[in-house]
């Protein structure tokens, strides 16, 4: 088990695109806090910011492209051709030769992804929230540990969501487009909440309620319930992905 996870970790961290995700995801949120500091300070002074306890946690959202890229690339890299001159040669063939038990392979891959993303989320959250404390410490209360844990869980679950969708589509472009569009400032899921309250239970909307309080969510969901609903989404998609991975020809 340990050697499989180590192999998957090495494969993931050996991908240049994974490092794009790691660097982007870790640095974007702290950079935004730094860039927005003058505007935030003015907004606090003017009293337009009603709940400052959300401040750093809310900025964390822009870093989510990191876990998305990592989740997608962990699977799609297995399916892209290794060379222009060797049509049909994909890394997955070698991977399955080394670990023929597909379920064990998937468990190791998932574990490696969770380890990398959780570490990235912890670093990004520490940097973002620490910077918020340094810049606006007088006005912003230190975030509760439970909310920080919720944010780290949200990042990890987002990566797993991307990973599960890619397991189903076996192609990186589709989940990437879907997820990146949906992480823009006004997301499609948010638009849907304007049409039906049911959209509040979409994974990205419900997951955010684990650690963000002051937002115009049409349905208030307790953090614990929110975490459970998002976990359920990820679990269902992962189960579908795992069954397909086991049954389909590689």
């Amino acid at each position: 088990m340990v050697s499989r996870v180590r192999a998957e970790l090495r494969k993931l961290l050996g991908l240049p695109t994974a490092w794009v995700g790691l660097v982007l995801g870790t640095l974007t949120a702290p950079a935004i806090v730094l860039l927005n500091a003058p505007y935030t300070r003015r907004a606090i002074a003017a009293g337009t910011l009603t709940d400052t306890s959300d401040l750093g946690l809310r900025d964390l959202g822009v870093g989510l492209i990191g876990p998305m890229v990592l989740g997608v690339i962990a699977v799609s890299s297995e399916y892209t051709s290794t060379s222009q001159h060797a049509p049909g040669a994909r890394q997955l063939t070698a991977t399955l030769t080394a670990v023929p038990d597909r379920l064990r392979l998937l468990v190791a891959k998932t574990a490696a992804l969770v380890l990398v993303v959780a570490a990235q989320a912890a670093v990004a959250a520490t940097a973002t929230l620490g910077l918020t404390q340094v810049l606006h410490g007088d006005h912003v209360p230190a975030p509760a540990p439970a909310r920080v844990a919720g944010a780290i869980l949200y990042w990890t679950l987002t990566a797993l969501l991307a990973y599960a969708i890619t397991l189903i589509t076996r192609n990186g472009i589709v989940p990437l487009t879907l997820l990146v569009i949906n992480s823009t400032v006004v997301s499609v899921s948010y638009l849907l909440t304007k049409i039906t309250d049911l959209a509040s239970y979409l994974p990205d909307i419900v997951g955010a309620q684990m650690f963000i309080r002051d937002a115009d969510f049409p349905v208030e969901i307790a953090p614990l319930t929110a975490g459970l609903v998002m976990t359920a989404w990820v679990a269902v998609l992962l189960a579908i992905g795992a069954v397909l991975f086991q049954r389909r020809d590689a």
Binding site: P16, T17, V20, G21, L24, T28, I32, L35, N36, Y39, V62, I65, V69, V72, I73, S76, T80, G172, I173, L176, T177, V180, I181, S183, T184, V185
Partner: peptide, 24 residues
């Protein structure tokens, strides 16, 4: 020359960096 990295670059620019810069 590769689809996924090009898509990450473009989608990141259009949907994450762009809106963030415009908010300022």
């Amino acid at each position: 020359r590769r689809a996924v990295p090009a898509a990450i670059l473009l989608l990141g620019l259009y949907f994450i960096v762009g809106p963030l810069l415009r908010a300022r």
